[in-house]
Design a protein around this nucleic acid. Structure first.
Lengths: 251, 251
DNA sequence: GACAGCGTACCGGTGAGTGGAACGCGAGCG
DNA sequence: CGCTCGCGTTCCACTCACCGGTACGCTGTC
Protein backbone atom coordinates (compact mmCIF):
# COMPACT_ATOMS: atom_id res chain seq x y z
CA UNK A 1 0.00 0.00 0.00
CA UNK A 2 2.99 2.27 -0.01
CA UNK A 3 2.44 4.69 -2.84
CA UNK A 4 4.57 7.24 -4.58
CA UNK A 5 8.28 7.94 -4.61
CA UNK A 6 9.84 9.00 -1.34
CA UNK A 7 13.03 10.27 -2.89
CA UNK A 8 11.90 13.85 -3.20
CA UNK A 9 10.98 16.40 -0.55
CA UNK A 10 7.57 16.75 -2.02
CA UNK A 11 6.94 13.05 -2.05
CA UNK A 12 7.90 12.82 1.58
CA UNK A 13 5.67 15.74 2.51
CA UNK A 14 2.72 14.20 0.72
CA UNK A 15 3.44 10.86 2.33
CA UNK A 16 3.35 12.60 5.68
CA UNK A 17 -0.03 14.13 4.97
CA UNK A 18 -1.34 10.85 3.62
CA UNK A 19 -0.14 9.06 6.73
CA UNK A 20 -3.25 10.42 8.37
CA UNK A 21 -5.99 7.88 7.92
CA UNK A 22 -9.63 8.84 7.95
CA UNK A 23 -10.23 8.62 11.66
CA UNK A 24 -6.88 9.76 12.93
CA UNK A 25 -7.03 13.09 14.59
CA UNK A 26 -3.59 13.66 16.00
CA UNK A 27 -0.48 11.61 15.30
CA UNK A 28 2.75 11.86 17.29
CA UNK A 29 6.03 12.23 15.49
CA UNK A 30 7.06 8.68 16.22
CA UNK A 31 3.91 7.32 14.65
CA UNK A 32 4.54 9.36 11.53
CA UNK A 33 8.04 7.95 11.41
CA UNK A 34 6.65 4.44 11.65
CA UNK A 35 4.02 4.94 8.99
CA UNK A 36 6.16 6.68 6.45
CA UNK A 37 9.37 4.81 7.03
CA UNK A 38 11.26 8.08 6.93
CA UNK A 39 14.02 8.93 9.35
CA UNK A 40 13.18 10.75 12.52
CA UNK A 41 15.15 13.83 11.65
CA UNK A 42 13.52 14.15 8.27
CA UNK A 43 10.03 13.79 9.60
CA UNK A 44 10.75 16.34 12.27
CA UNK A 45 11.95 18.88 9.78
CA UNK A 46 9.32 18.34 7.11
CA UNK A 47 6.50 18.27 9.62
CA UNK A 48 7.88 21.53 10.97
CA UNK A 49 7.88 23.01 7.50
CA UNK A 50 4.34 21.84 6.91
CA UNK A 51 3.30 23.54 10.12
CA UNK A 52 4.87 26.75 8.89
CA UNK A 53 2.94 26.43 5.68
CA UNK A 54 -0.25 25.86 7.65
CA UNK A 55 -0.97 22.41 6.34
CA UNK A 56 -0.35 20.83 9.73
CA UNK A 57 -1.03 21.95 13.26
CA UNK A 58 1.27 21.11 16.08
CA UNK A 59 -0.39 20.09 19.32
CA UNK A 60 1.10 18.89 22.59
CA UNK A 61 0.23 15.34 21.56
CA UNK A 62 1.53 15.46 18.01
CA UNK A 63 0.52 16.78 14.63
CA UNK A 64 -2.83 17.01 12.94
CA UNK A 65 -4.11 18.11 9.57
CA UNK A 66 -4.90 21.79 9.75
CA UNK A 67 -7.75 24.02 8.75
CA UNK A 68 -5.63 25.35 5.91
CA UNK A 69 -5.78 21.94 4.33
CA UNK A 70 -9.53 21.89 4.77
CA UNK A 71 -9.82 25.18 2.96
CA UNK A 72 -7.60 24.00 0.17
CA UNK A 73 -9.50 20.78 -0.21
CA UNK A 74 -12.78 22.61 -0.54
CA UNK A 75 -11.40 24.39 -3.57
CA UNK A 76 -10.95 21.19 -5.50
CA UNK A 77 -12.87 22.08 -8.61
CA UNK A 78 -14.78 18.97 -9.58
CA UNK A 79 -15.84 17.94 -6.12
CA UNK A 80 -16.85 21.40 -5.04
CA UNK A 81 -19.07 22.26 -7.97
CA UNK A 82 -20.69 18.85 -7.80
CA UNK A 83 -21.27 19.33 -4.11
CA UNK A 84 -22.69 22.81 -4.45
CA UNK A 85 -25.06 21.93 -7.24
CA UNK A 86 -26.14 18.74 -5.57
CA UNK A 87 -26.82 20.16 -2.14
CA UNK A 88 -30.39 21.34 -2.78
CA UNK A 89 -31.37 17.98 -4.20
CA UNK A 90 -29.78 16.07 -1.36
CA UNK A 91 -31.53 18.40 0.99
CA UNK A 92 -34.90 17.65 -0.55
CA UNK A 93 -34.21 13.98 -0.45
CA UNK A 94 -33.27 14.14 3.19
CA UNK A 95 -36.38 16.06 4.02
CA UNK A 96 -38.51 13.53 2.23
CA UNK A 97 -36.91 10.53 3.89
CA UNK A 98 -35.25 11.78 7.08
CA UNK A 99 -32.58 9.19 6.60
CA UNK A 100 -28.88 9.52 5.88
CA UNK A 101 -28.25 10.75 2.34
CA UNK A 102 -25.00 10.16 0.47
CA UNK A 103 -23.49 11.53 -2.71
CA UNK A 104 -20.62 9.50 -4.12
CA UNK A 105 -18.36 9.40 -7.12
CA UNK A 106 -16.10 6.78 -8.59
CA UNK A 107 -12.36 6.92 -8.18
CA UNK A 108 -10.42 3.99 -9.49
CA UNK A 109 -12.04 0.89 -8.08
CA UNK A 110 -13.53 2.64 -5.09
CA UNK A 111 -16.30 5.01 -4.10
CA UNK A 112 -15.46 8.43 -2.69
CA UNK A 113 -18.19 10.14 -0.72
CA UNK A 114 -18.53 13.78 -1.61
CA UNK A 115 -21.38 14.54 0.76
CA UNK A 116 -23.16 12.92 3.64
CA UNK A 117 -26.09 14.51 5.36
CA UNK A 118 -28.16 13.17 8.17
CA UNK A 119 -30.11 14.09 11.26
CA UNK A 120 -29.88 13.10 14.87
CA UNK A 121 -31.37 9.67 14.39
CA UNK A 122 -29.08 8.73 11.58
CA UNK A 123 -27.88 5.20 11.05
CA UNK A 124 -24.40 4.61 12.38
CA UNK A 125 -22.54 4.17 9.16
CA UNK A 126 -18.78 4.15 8.80
CA UNK A 127 -18.88 6.39 5.75
CA UNK A 128 -17.55 9.92 5.92
CA UNK A 129 -17.43 12.83 3.59
CA UNK A 130 -14.15 12.42 1.78
CA UNK A 131 -13.97 8.77 2.77
CA UNK A 132 -13.73 5.68 0.60
CA UNK A 133 -15.50 2.38 0.32
CA UNK A 134 -15.19 -0.60 -2.01
CA UNK A 135 -17.63 -0.61 -4.90
CA UNK A 136 -18.93 -4.14 -4.74
CA UNK A 137 -20.57 -3.94 -1.35
CA UNK A 138 -22.27 -0.54 -1.33
CA UNK A 139 -25.37 0.62 -3.12
CA UNK A 140 -23.62 3.67 -4.53
CA UNK A 141 -20.73 1.51 -5.58
CA UNK A 142 -22.96 -0.93 -7.43
CA UNK A 143 -24.66 1.90 -9.28
CA UNK A 144 -21.36 3.38 -10.34
CA UNK A 145 -19.97 -0.02 -11.21
CA UNK A 146 -22.99 -0.92 -13.33
CA UNK A 147 -22.49 2.19 -15.44
CA UNK A 148 -18.71 2.18 -15.42
CA UNK A 149 -16.36 1.36 -18.26
CA UNK A 150 -16.16 -2.30 -19.00
CA UNK A 151 -12.53 -2.15 -18.06
CA UNK A 152 -13.23 -0.93 -14.52
CA UNK A 153 -16.05 -3.40 -14.09
CA UNK A 154 -13.92 -6.30 -15.15
CA UNK A 155 -11.13 -5.06 -12.95
CA UNK A 156 -13.31 -5.05 -9.87
CA UNK A 157 -15.14 -8.27 -10.66
CA UNK A 158 -11.92 -9.99 -11.57
CA UNK A 159 -10.10 -8.99 -8.40
CA UNK A 160 -10.62 -10.31 -4.94
CA UNK A 161 -14.00 -9.20 -3.58
CA UNK A 162 -13.48 -8.46 0.07
CA UNK A 163 -16.04 -10.13 2.33
CA UNK A 164 -16.99 -7.39 4.77
CA UNK A 165 -19.99 -9.02 6.37
CA UNK A 166 -21.68 -12.40 6.05
CA UNK A 167 -24.02 -10.75 3.54
CA UNK A 168 -21.40 -9.34 1.22
CA UNK A 169 -21.84 -10.59 -2.31
CA UNK A 170 -18.50 -12.06 -3.30
CA UNK A 171 -19.63 -14.33 -6.14
CA UNK A 172 -18.77 -12.48 -9.39
CA UNK A 173 -21.64 -14.14 -11.21
CA UNK A 174 -24.28 -13.06 -8.74
CA UNK A 175 -22.85 -9.59 -8.56
CA UNK A 176 -22.84 -9.31 -12.33
CA UNK A 177 -26.50 -10.28 -12.39
CA UNK A 178 -27.24 -7.63 -9.77
CA UNK A 179 -25.45 -5.04 -11.86
CA UNK A 180 -27.46 -5.74 -14.99
CA UNK A 181 -30.59 -5.49 -12.91
CA UNK A 182 -29.36 -2.08 -11.78
CA UNK A 183 -29.19 -1.01 -15.41
CA UNK A 184 -32.76 -2.22 -15.94
CA UNK A 185 -34.36 -0.79 -12.85
CA UNK A 186 -32.26 2.29 -12.29
CA UNK A 187 -31.61 1.54 -8.62
CA UNK A 188 -29.22 -0.59 -6.62
CA UNK A 189 -29.72 -2.05 -3.19
CA UNK A 190 -27.38 -2.98 -0.42
CA UNK A 191 -28.51 -5.12 2.46
CA UNK A 192 -25.92 -5.30 5.22
CA UNK A 193 -23.23 -6.01 2.68
CA UNK A 194 -20.76 -3.39 3.85
CA UNK A 195 -21.88 -2.86 7.42
CA UNK A 196 -24.07 -5.03 9.60
CA UNK A 197 -27.42 -3.44 10.32
CA UNK A 198 -27.46 -1.07 7.35
CA UNK A 199 -29.68 -1.03 4.30
CA UNK A 200 -29.32 1.28 1.34
CA UNK A 201 -30.85 2.30 -2.02
CA UNK A 202 -28.91 4.23 -4.62
CA UNK A 203 -29.56 5.70 -8.07
CA UNK A 204 -27.24 7.02 -10.77
CA UNK A 205 -26.70 10.66 -11.66
CA UNK A 206 -26.41 10.37 -15.42
CA UNK A 207 -25.22 12.80 -17.99
CA UNK A 208 -28.21 12.61 -20.36
CA UNK A 209 -26.04 13.35 -23.35
CA UNK A 210 -23.08 11.12 -22.87
CA UNK A 211 -24.80 8.30 -21.02
CA UNK A 212 -21.97 8.36 -18.52
CA UNK A 213 -22.34 8.28 -14.74
CA UNK A 214 -21.31 11.44 -13.00
CA UNK A 215 -22.15 10.33 -9.49
CA UNK A 216 -24.67 8.40 -7.45
CA UNK A 217 -27.10 9.31 -4.69
CA UNK A 218 -28.27 7.04 -1.91
CA UNK A 219 -30.47 6.80 1.16
CA UNK A 220 -29.34 4.65 4.07
CA UNK A 221 -31.14 3.41 7.14
CA UNK A 222 -30.96 0.77 9.85
CA UNK A 223 -32.46 -2.69 9.68
CA UNK A 224 -35.75 -2.63 11.50
CA UNK A 225 -37.44 0.67 11.02
CA UNK A 226 -36.01 1.25 7.57
CA UNK A 227 -37.10 -0.41 4.34
CA UNK A 228 -35.18 0.69 1.24
CA UNK A 229 -37.70 -0.22 -1.45
CA UNK A 230 -40.25 2.49 -0.71
CA UNK A 231 -37.55 5.11 -1.20
CA UNK A 232 -36.42 3.86 -4.58
CA UNK A 233 -38.50 6.29 -6.61
CA UNK A 234 -37.53 9.27 -4.48
CA UNK A 235 -33.85 8.46 -4.83
CA UNK A 236 -34.19 7.89 -8.54
CA UNK A 237 -36.02 11.18 -8.95
CA UNK A 238 -33.47 13.15 -6.97
CA UNK A 239 -30.59 11.63 -8.92
CA UNK A 240 -32.27 12.29 -12.24
CA UNK A 241 -33.04 15.89 -11.38
CA UNK A 242 -29.47 16.43 -10.30
CA UNK A 243 -28.27 14.88 -13.53
CA UNK A 244 -30.17 17.26 -15.74
CA UNK A 245 -29.10 20.22 -13.65
CA UNK A 246 -25.48 19.21 -14.01
CA UNK A 247 -25.63 18.79 -17.74
CA UNK A 248 -27.51 22.06 -18.12
CA UNK A 249 -24.76 23.76 -16.15
CA UNK A 250 -22.04 22.19 -18.23
CA UNK A 251 -22.68 24.09 -21.44
CA UNK B 1 -0.41 39.28 0.26
CA UNK B 2 2.44 37.05 -0.79
CA UNK B 3 2.89 34.67 2.06
CA UNK B 4 5.46 32.15 3.08
CA UNK B 5 9.00 31.49 1.95
CA UNK B 6 9.51 30.49 -1.65
CA UNK B 7 13.06 29.33 -1.17
CA UNK B 8 12.16 25.73 -0.52
CA UNK B 9 10.52 23.15 -2.76
CA UNK B 10 7.78 22.69 -0.30
CA UNK B 11 7.10 26.38 -0.08
CA UNK B 12 6.85 26.59 -3.82
CA UNK B 13 4.52 23.63 -4.00
CA UNK B 14 2.25 25.10 -1.37
CA UNK B 15 2.35 28.45 -3.13
CA UNK B 16 1.25 26.70 -6.28
CA UNK B 17 -1.70 25.10 -4.52
CA UNK B 18 -2.58 28.36 -2.82
CA UNK B 19 -2.46 30.14 -6.15
CA UNK B 20 -5.91 28.71 -6.73
CA UNK B 21 -8.42 31.19 -5.43
CA UNK B 22 -11.85 30.16 -4.28
CA UNK B 23 -13.61 30.32 -7.61
CA UNK B 24 -10.81 29.26 -9.89
CA UNK B 25 -11.41 25.92 -11.40
CA UNK B 26 -8.59 25.40 -13.84
CA UNK B 27 -5.45 27.52 -14.17
CA UNK B 28 -3.03 27.31 -17.09
CA UNK B 29 0.67 27.02 -16.45
CA UNK B 30 1.34 30.58 -17.48
CA UNK B 31 -1.17 31.90 -14.98
CA UNK B 32 0.45 29.91 -12.21
CA UNK B 33 3.78 31.38 -13.23
CA UNK B 34 2.30 34.86 -13.00
CA UNK B 35 0.66 34.34 -9.65
CA UNK B 36 3.53 32.67 -7.92
CA UNK B 37 6.37 34.61 -9.47
CA UNK B 38 8.27 31.38 -9.98
CA UNK B 39 10.13 30.59 -13.16
CA UNK B 40 8.37 28.70 -15.90
CA UNK B 41 10.61 25.68 -15.68
CA UNK B 42 10.13 25.36 -11.97
CA UNK B 43 6.37 25.63 -12.13
CA UNK B 44 6.28 23.08 -14.89
CA UNK B 45 8.27 20.60 -12.90
CA UNK B 46 6.61 21.09 -9.54
CA UNK B 47 3.12 21.07 -11.02
CA UNK B 48 4.06 17.84 -12.74
CA UNK B 49 5.22 16.39 -9.44
CA UNK B 50 2.00 17.47 -7.78
CA UNK B 51 0.05 15.73 -10.48
CA UNK B 52 1.99 12.55 -9.81
CA UNK B 53 1.19 12.87 -6.16
CA UNK B 54 -2.47 13.34 -7.00
CA UNK B 55 -2.83 16.79 -5.52
CA UNK B 56 -3.36 18.36 -8.93
CA UNK B 57 -5.12 17.19 -12.06
CA UNK B 58 -3.83 18.03 -15.47
CA UNK B 59 -6.45 19.00 -18.00
CA UNK B 60 -6.11 20.20 -21.58
CA UNK B 61 -6.67 23.74 -20.35
CA UNK B 62 -4.32 23.68 -17.39
CA UNK B 63 -4.18 22.37 -13.86
CA UNK B 64 -6.81 22.11 -11.19
CA UNK B 65 -6.94 21.00 -7.59
CA UNK B 66 -7.66 17.31 -7.51
CA UNK B 67 -9.98 15.03 -5.66
CA UNK B 68 -7.05 13.76 -3.64
CA UNK B 69 -6.77 17.17 -2.09
CA UNK B 70 -10.46 17.15 -1.33
CA UNK B 71 -10.10 13.86 0.47
CA UNK B 72 -7.13 15.09 2.42
CA UNK B 73 -8.89 18.27 3.40
CA UNK B 74 -11.85 16.37 4.73
CA UNK B 75 -9.55 14.62 7.16
CA UNK B 76 -8.58 17.82 8.89
CA UNK B 77 -9.40 16.89 12.41
CA UNK B 78 -10.96 19.95 13.97
CA UNK B 79 -13.11 20.97 11.03
CA UNK B 80 -14.33 17.49 10.30
CA UNK B 81 -15.48 16.61 13.79
CA UNK B 82 -17.14 19.97 14.14
CA UNK B 83 -18.86 19.47 10.83
CA UNK B 84 -20.03 15.96 11.59
CA UNK B 85 -21.39 16.79 14.99
CA UNK B 86 -23.02 19.96 13.75
CA UNK B 87 -24.72 18.51 10.71
CA UNK B 88 -27.87 17.24 12.45
CA UNK B 89 -28.44 20.60 14.11
CA UNK B 90 -27.87 22.52 10.92
CA UNK B 91 -30.21 20.13 9.23
CA UNK B 92 -32.94 20.80 11.77
CA UNK B 93 -32.39 24.49 11.46
CA UNK B 94 -32.67 24.35 7.72
CA UNK B 95 -35.83 22.33 7.92
CA UNK B 96 -37.33 24.81 10.29
CA UNK B 97 -36.43 27.85 8.21
CA UNK B 98 -35.83 26.63 4.68
CA UNK B 99 -33.21 29.30 4.27
CA UNK B 100 -29.47 29.04 3.78
CA UNK B 101 -27.71 27.86 6.94
CA UNK B 102 -24.06 28.52 7.69
CA UNK B 103 -21.59 27.21 10.22
CA UNK B 104 -18.47 29.30 10.65
CA UNK B 105 -15.37 29.47 12.79
CA UNK B 106 -12.84 32.18 13.46
CA UNK B 107 -9.42 32.11 11.89
CA UNK B 108 -7.23 35.10 12.55
CA UNK B 109 -9.29 38.14 11.70
CA UNK B 110 -11.62 36.34 9.35
CA UNK B 111 -14.49 33.90 9.26
CA UNK B 112 -14.05 30.50 7.66
CA UNK B 113 -17.22 28.70 6.67
CA UNK B 114 -17.18 25.05 7.62
CA UNK B 115 -20.60 24.23 6.26
CA UNK B 116 -23.25 25.79 4.10
CA UNK B 117 -26.54 24.12 3.39
CA UNK B 118 -29.43 25.40 1.39
CA UNK B 119 -32.22 24.44 -0.93
CA UNK B 120 -33.19 25.43 -4.44
CA UNK B 121 -34.51 28.83 -3.51
CA UNK B 122 -31.47 29.83 -1.54
CA UNK B 123 -30.24 33.38 -1.44
CA UNK B 124 -27.37 34.02 -3.80
CA UNK B 125 -24.60 34.52 -1.33
CA UNK B 126 -20.92 34.63 -2.17
CA UNK B 127 -19.99 32.41 0.76
CA UNK B 128 -18.73 28.91 0.17
CA UNK B 129 -17.79 26.02 2.34
CA UNK B 130 -14.12 26.50 3.03
CA UNK B 131 -14.35 30.15 2.02
CA UNK B 132 -13.48 33.26 3.99
CA UNK B 133 -15.16 36.53 4.82
CA UNK B 134 -14.22 39.52 6.95
CA UNK B 135 -15.61 39.51 10.46
CA UNK B 136 -16.98 43.00 10.72
CA UNK B 137 -19.62 42.73 8.01
CA UNK B 138 -21.14 39.30 8.52
CA UNK B 139 -23.51 38.08 11.21
CA UNK B 140 -21.33 35.07 11.99
CA UNK B 141 -18.31 37.31 12.08
CA UNK B 142 -19.90 39.70 14.53
CA UNK B 143 -20.86 36.87 16.82
CA UNK B 144 -17.36 35.47 16.79
CA UNK B 145 -15.85 38.91 17.19
CA UNK B 146 -18.07 39.75 20.13
CA UNK B 147 -16.86 36.67 21.99
CA UNK B 148 -13.28 36.75 20.76
CA UNK B 149 -10.17 37.66 22.72
CA UNK B 150 -9.84 41.34 23.36
CA UNK B 151 -6.68 41.25 21.31
CA UNK B 152 -8.44 40.02 18.19
CA UNK B 153 -11.32 42.40 18.66
CA UNK B 154 -9.01 45.36 19.00
CA UNK B 155 -7.05 44.19 16.02
CA UNK B 156 -10.08 44.11 13.79
CA UNK B 157 -11.63 47.28 15.12
CA UNK B 158 -8.32 49.08 14.99
CA UNK B 159 -7.59 48.10 11.40
CA UNK B 160 -9.21 49.39 8.27
CA UNK B 161 -12.82 48.20 8.06
CA UNK B 162 -13.46 47.43 4.43
CA UNK B 163 -16.64 49.02 3.08
CA UNK B 164 -18.21 46.24 1.07
CA UNK B 165 -21.62 47.79 0.51
CA UNK B 166 -23.21 51.12 1.36
CA UNK B 167 -24.60 49.45 4.48
CA UNK B 168 -21.35 48.11 5.83
CA UNK B 169 -20.68 49.40 9.33
CA UNK B 170 -17.24 50.94 9.22
CA UNK B 171 -17.48 53.19 12.28
CA UNK B 172 -15.59 51.39 15.08
CA UNK B 173 -17.78 52.99 17.72
CA UNK B 174 -21.03 51.81 16.21
CA UNK B 175 -19.64 48.38 15.57
CA UNK B 176 -18.45 48.12 19.16
CA UNK B 177 -21.92 49.02 20.36
CA UNK B 178 -23.37 46.33 18.11
CA UNK B 179 -20.96 43.79 19.53
CA UNK B 180 -21.90 44.48 23.12
CA UNK B 181 -25.52 44.13 22.15
CA UNK B 182 -24.62 40.74 20.69
CA UNK B 183 -23.29 39.70 24.08
CA UNK B 184 -26.53 40.84 25.71
CA UNK B 185 -28.99 39.33 23.29
CA UNK B 186 -27.10 36.29 22.08
CA UNK B 187 -27.66 37.03 18.40
CA UNK B 188 -26.08 39.20 15.74
CA UNK B 189 -27.67 40.65 12.65
CA UNK B 190 -26.33 41.62 9.28
CA UNK B 191 -28.39 43.72 6.91
CA UNK B 192 -26.81 43.92 3.48
CA UNK B 193 -23.45 44.72 5.04
CA UNK B 194 -21.41 42.17 3.14
CA UNK B 195 -23.60 41.58 0.10
CA UNK B 196 -26.43 43.69 -1.28
CA UNK B 197 -29.78 42.01 -0.89
CA UNK B 198 -28.84 39.67 1.93
CA UNK B 199 -29.97 39.58 5.53
CA UNK B 200 -28.65 37.29 8.22
CA UNK B 201 -29.00 36.25 11.89
CA UNK B 202 -26.31 34.39 13.75
CA UNK B 203 -25.80 32.93 17.21
CA UNK B 204 -22.73 31.68 19.05
CA UNK B 205 -21.83 28.06 19.73
CA UNK B 206 -20.36 28.39 23.19
CA UNK B 207 -18.37 26.00 25.26
CA UNK B 208 -20.46 26.15 28.44
CA UNK B 209 -17.44 25.46 30.61
CA UNK B 210 -14.82 27.75 29.22
CA UNK B 211 -17.08 30.52 27.99
CA UNK B 212 -15.21 30.52 24.73
CA UNK B 213 -16.77 30.55 21.26
CA UNK B 214 -16.27 27.41 19.29
CA UNK B 215 -18.20 28.49 16.21
CA UNK B 216 -21.29 30.33 15.09
CA UNK B 217 -24.44 29.36 13.25
CA UNK B 218 -26.48 31.58 10.98
CA UNK B 219 -29.54 31.76 8.77
CA UNK B 220 -29.44 33.91 5.64
CA UNK B 221 -32.15 35.10 3.30
CA UNK B 222 -32.89 37.72 0.68
CA UNK B 223 -34.33 41.14 1.31
CA UNK B 224 -38.04 41.00 0.61
CA UNK B 225 -39.42 37.67 1.60
CA UNK B 226 -36.97 37.15 4.43
CA UNK B 227 -36.99 38.77 7.85
CA UNK B 228 -34.18 37.76 10.17
CA UNK B 229 -35.75 38.63 13.53
CA UNK B 230 -38.33 35.84 13.64
CA UNK B 231 -35.57 33.28 13.25
CA UNK B 232 -33.45 34.59 16.09
CA UNK B 233 -34.72 32.12 18.65
CA UNK B 234 -34.39 29.15 16.34
CA UNK B 235 -30.82 30.05 15.51
CA UNK B 236 -29.99 30.63 19.15
CA UNK B 237 -31.51 27.31 20.11
CA UNK B 238 -29.68 25.39 17.41
CA UNK B 239 -26.37 26.99 18.34
CA UNK B 240 -26.89 26.32 22.04
CA UNK B 241 -27.81 22.69 21.44
CA UNK B 242 -24.74 22.22 19.30
CA UNK B 243 -22.63 23.83 21.98
CA UNK B 244 -23.69 21.42 24.68
CA UNK B 245 -23.25 18.47 22.35
CA UNK B 246 -19.73 19.57 21.55
CA UNK B 247 -18.70 20.04 25.15
CA UNK B 248 -20.29 16.73 26.11
CA UNK B 249 -18.25 15.07 23.41
CA UNK B 250 -15.08 16.75 24.52
CA UNK B 251 -14.63 14.94 27.80
C1' DG C 1 4.38 35.18 -42.70
C1' DA C 2 5.89 37.27 -38.65
C1' DC C 3 4.87 37.28 -34.06
C1' DA C 4 3.44 36.42 -29.47
C1' DG C 5 2.18 33.38 -25.89
C1' DC C 6 2.12 28.99 -24.36
C1' DG C 7 3.81 24.29 -22.91
C1' DT C 8 7.79 21.35 -22.98
C1' DA C 9 12.70 19.76 -22.67
C1' DC C 10 17.49 20.08 -21.43
C1' DC C 11 21.60 20.98 -18.44
C1' DG C 12 25.56 22.14 -15.27
C1' DG C 13 26.44 24.36 -10.83
C1' DT C 14 25.24 24.49 -6.02
C1' DG C 15 22.93 24.79 -1.77
C1' DA C 16 18.85 22.62 0.23
C1' DG C 17 17.89 18.40 1.96
C1' DT C 18 19.54 14.14 3.98
C1' DG C 19 19.71 10.59 7.77
C1' DG C 20 22.69 9.05 11.33
C1' DA C 21 24.37 10.15 15.78
C1' DA C 22 23.91 12.33 20.07
C1' DC C 23 21.25 14.64 23.84
C1' DG C 24 17.64 15.58 27.42
C1' DC C 25 13.54 14.20 29.23
C1' DG C 26 9.78 11.69 31.31
C1' DA C 27 7.39 7.40 32.13
C1' DG C 28 7.25 2.71 33.35
C1' DC C 29 9.32 -1.07 35.65
C1' DG C 30 12.05 -4.30 38.26
C1' DC D 1 15.48 4.19 43.49
C1' DG D 2 18.09 3.61 39.30
C1' DC D 3 17.65 1.62 34.81
C1' DT D 4 15.89 1.68 30.44
C1' DC D 5 13.13 2.62 26.80
C1' DG D 6 10.69 5.70 23.66
C1' DC D 7 10.03 10.13 22.37
C1' DG D 8 11.13 14.85 20.57
C1' DT D 9 14.81 17.75 19.41
C1' DT D 10 19.34 19.38 17.58
C1' DC D 11 23.50 19.11 14.93
C1' DC D 12 26.45 18.31 10.94
C1' DA D 13 29.09 17.07 6.71
C1' DC D 14 28.04 14.85 2.37
C1' DT D 15 25.62 14.77 -2.00
C1' DC D 16 22.19 14.76 -5.17
C1' DA D 17 17.76 16.92 -6.05
C1' DC D 18 16.58 21.25 -7.41
C1' DC D 19 17.15 25.57 -9.91
C1' DG D 20 16.41 28.89 -13.63
C1' DG D 21 18.19 30.26 -18.02
C1' DT D 22 18.02 28.84 -22.63
C1' DA D 23 16.17 26.72 -26.50
C1' DC D 24 12.44 24.36 -29.16
C1' DG D 25 7.80 23.34 -31.22
C1' DC D 26 3.09 24.38 -31.51
C1' DT D 27 -1.03 27.24 -32.17
C1' DG D 28 -3.52 30.77 -32.77
C1' DT D 29 -3.84 36.13 -34.27
C1' DC D 30 -3.01 40.37 -36.71
Amino acid sequence: MTDAALDTVLGKAVALLRAFRVDDTVLPLAELVRRTGLSKGTVHRIAGDLVEHRLLDKTPHGYRLSGGLFELGMRAAAERTLLELAMPFLQDLYERTHETVHLGIQDGTEVVYVAKIGGHRQARSPSRTGGRMPMHCTAIGKVLLAHADEEVRDGVLGGELERRTPHTVVAPGLLRRQLSKVLETGVAYEREESTPGLLCVAAPVLDPDGHTVLAAVSVTGPVGRFRPEPHATAVRAAAAALGSTLSRRRR
